[in-house]
């Protein structure tokens, strides 16, 4: 489960690639083209990488950044009275 400021997201912890513990991986941003021929770093905190092979996933949608044919299952997160619930 991931917290982006006030937003919560939940992903399955079984990587769609080969079953690694994706949610235990590093949460970070990612390199992207800066539009002027160089690189920039963007989406800080919105990307989790599976520690087994380094596949990057969008923590909100579960989509693999490199290939949208792969998507980690996501779960609805509800916050009620300060308690966070995951709908599985």
């Amino acid at each position: 489960m991931f917290r982006l400021n006030e937003e919560f997201c939940a992903l399955a912890n079984h990587c769609v690639h080969q079953g690694g513990p994706v949610c235990e991986g590093q949460v970070s941003g990612t390199l992207a083209p800066d539009g002027e021929g160089g690189l920039c770093y963007e989406r800080e905190g919105e990307v989790v990488s599976c520690p087994w092979h380094g596949w990057e996933f969008d923590v909100r949608t579960g989509e693999a950044l490199a290939d949208r044919n792969y998507r980690q299952p996501t779960y609805e997160v509800v916050v009620e009275d300060g308690t966070v619930y995951v709908e599985a």
Binding site: A32, P33, H53, E56, A66
Partner: peptide, 18 residues
């Protein structure tokens, strides 16, 4: 190349498809 790109996408951030 696709196989490795899925894990090493930051090496080729210009790409918008496989």
């Amino acid at each position: 190349f696709d196989h490795e790109y899925r894990a090493k996408r930051e090496d080729a951030p210009m790409l918008e498809k496989l």
